[in-house]
């Protein structure tokens, strides 16, 4: 129940947060703008709109995850509002899980709003709603959840600026792990390949959660592909949240 209470309060904080609303409005505006971009593309209007719309969702989801995820936890610590929560009869991990659940709820509302905008644009241009986009949208949500978990973890360890940088680097590395793997395979004798191998095994492969190109190209996505990708993402989320709770559990709230 404490987790739910903190989650609902975090959700309330997020939706009353002007930064998040501005990012969201900008994202929705940009998805709407894809109609114009589509006009400029020669014969590929629908494809460009879908591609651009899904990418906008992914990028703005990342921005919201970084800004809100890091800010919410750091703000609690810096402004010392955490004193009034952590001194109540609740466990530290309940605070972490509550904060994370509230963010997850905020993000699902954001993703739904962006997805509805994309589908409306799709309806206007194509005259039908392409439900084939939904697996990609769902995995974008899982990816954002994963990024938020890391953002929360980093912000329990370091300053907000470093946390944002670390989250951004993780996002980029996460999309480059396939290249890393190829590099290690082709050049196995390079001196620093142990470092690249470490990164490859620790950083989640975010390309596993990327179905954008596939759905835009109408490549069929069997349910087990989405299910495996979801399980992969959720496993990482659980591990990162356990680590965050362990760090927070020992943290002096000065």
């Amino acid at each position: 129940m404490s987790v739910l209470t903190i989650a609902m309060n975090t959700f309330r904080e997020s939706i009353r947060n002007r930064v998040m609303i501005n990012i969201l409005l900008f994202a929705v505006g940009l998805i709407l703008l894809s109609i114009v971009l589509g006009e400029w593309s020669l014969g590929e209007q629908i494809k460009v709109i879908k591609d651009f719309g899904l990418s906008a969702m992914s990028i703005f989801g990342l921005l919201i995850a970084i800004f809100i995820g890091i800010r919410l936890m750091v703000q609690e610590l810096e402004q010392r509002t955490i004193y009034l929560i952590a001194s109540k009869p609740i466990r530290r991990w309940e605070i972490v899980l509550g904060k994370y659940s509230g963010l997850a709820l905020t993000l699902i509302v954001n993703v739904i709003l962006m997805a509805v905008t994309l589908l409306v644009v799709n309806l206007i241009i194509e005259g039908r709603i392409d439900l084939g986009l939904l697996p990609a949208v769902f995995l974008i949500y899982i990816e954002i959840l994963l990024i938020v978990a890391f953002a929360l973890f980093f912000s329990s360890l370091m300053s907000p600026q470093l946390s944002a940088l670390a989250t951004l680097i993780l996002y980029m590395l996460g999309h480059l792990t396939n290249f890393l793997y190829e590099y290690i395979r082709v050049f196995p004798d390079k001196g620093f390949h142990w470092l690249l191998k470490g990164i490859y095994y620790i950083v989640p492969n975010l390309e596993k959660l990327n179905l954008k190109m596939a759905v835009v190209d109408h490549v069929p996505q069997p349910p087990h592909v989405v299910a495996w990708a979801t399980a992969y993402g959720l496993c990482y989320i659980v591990i990162v949240l356990i680590l965050t709770a362990a760090v927070f559990n020992k943290k002096d709230l000065k």
Partner: peptide, 21 residues
């Protein structure tokens, strides 16, 4: 322990409280 805190009320120095509530 969580149980110990059930019977305690705490006011920190210069309390900071969520402005959005």
């Amino acid at each position: 322990s969580v149980k110990a805190m059930r019977s305690v009320g705490f006011l920190p120095e210069q309390p900071q409280i969520y402005g959005y509530l």
